[in-house]
Simulated assay, not measured.
Amino acid sequence: MTLADPPFDAAADLADAPRVGGRQRPRDAATLILTRTRHGQAEVLMGRRAPGHVFMAAKWVFPGGRVERADFTAASGTELSDETAQLLAREMPSRRARALALAAVRETFEETGLILGTQAPTASVAGPWREFRAAGALPDLSALSYIARAITPPGRSRRFDARFFIASSDALLHPEPTAGSGELDEIAWLSLDQMQNLDLPAITRFVLGEVAARAEQADRPLPFVRQLHGRHIVQRL
């Protein structure tokens, strides 16, 4: 598989989000990589960002977005696995780690309509978790594994300190996406081979390589991609 262990394409990463100047502190964000196997082939859920977006317009990405205040207090049906919690604990307090995981689940629901959760009585809550809870579910954090981290280079119109989580479609309450919020104008389950010719951000292509490599080496050290002193580096954590 040619995506198994690609080098990180620094030039493509800079082209994905050209420098616009100014200083921004990266905001915490989380991404969810949903996987399944169909006819013997591994597939990943991908969405194409609508052309009008300021950041990564018209590119195919994983669902995800920034952490909201409500993610620090939202209820869940399960908690992070010990392994995932321990990996995140090396970087942050448990409250922040849990908020990142919840953001990955919430953003995926908002963008695709997919619920990574356990069935629960419907509940009326205010804020961004309202529709998720009204659907009769609580987030299933135990299904998440932490596999990568990346910080957007300085000077971009948006900067994120993004953690990438992965989960099997077996943890979804229903298997097929809906239109979601409209942030993604197309949503599809795609094989790694099908994604070769798509317009993918460099970081997305790199993390897809990690997904493929983890199928052969489950305990693979997770990568941390960032720019230091004008150079991209990939550190293994």
Score class of each variant (00 low, 15 high):
1 M>S: 13
1 M>N: 05
4 A>H: 15
5 D>P: 05
6 P>N: 05
12 A>N: 04
14 L>S: 09
17 A>Q: 13
22 G>P: 15
24 Q>H: 13
26 P>N: 09
26 P>H: 05
32 L>D: 11
33 I>N: 01
36 R>N: 11
37 T>R: 13
37 T>N: 08
40 G>V: 03
41 Q>E: 13
44 V>Y: 00
55 F>K: 14
61 V>Q: 11
68 E>G: 02
71 D>V: 04
71 D>G: 09
76 S>I: 00
76 S>M: 00
78 T>F: 01
78 T>M: 01
81 S>C: 06
81 S>K: 07
86 Q>T: 10
91 E>T: 07
93 P>V: 09
94 S>K: 08
96 R>N: 08
97 A>K: 02
101 A>N: 03
102 L>A: 03
102 L>Q: 07
103 A>V: 01
104 A>L: 03
106 R>G: 08
106 R>P: 10
106 R>C: 09
107 E>R: 10
107 E>C: 00
112 T>Y: 12
113 G>K: 11
114 L>W: 07
118 T>Q: 15
118 T>G: 11
118 T>L: 15
121 P>S: 05
126 A>Q: 02
127 G>C: 00
127 G>P: 07
130 R>S: 14
131 E>Q: 11
133 R>G: 04
135 A>G: 04
138 L>F: 02
142 S>C: 04
144 L>I: 07
145 S>L: 11
145 S>H: 08
145 S>D: 14
156 R>E: 05
158 R>P: 10
158 R>L: 12
159 R>S: 14
160 F>A: 10
161 D>L: 07
162 A>M: 15
163 R>P: 12
163 R>S: 09
164 F>D: 01
170 D>S: 14
175 P>E: 13
178 T>M: 12
179 A>P: 01
180 G>Q: 14
180 G>T: 13
182 G>Q: 13
183 E>W: 04
184 L>Y: 06
189 W>Q: 08
189 W>D: 12
191 S>K: 09
191 S>T: 05
195 M>F: 03
197 N>L: 06
199 D>Y: 04
199 D>W: 08
206 F>W: 06
208 L>M: 15
208 L>I: 10
212 A>C: 02
213 A>I: 02
215 A>L: 01
215 A>T: 10
223 P>E: 06
224 F>D: 15
225 V>H: 06
229 H>C: 00
232 H>E: 02
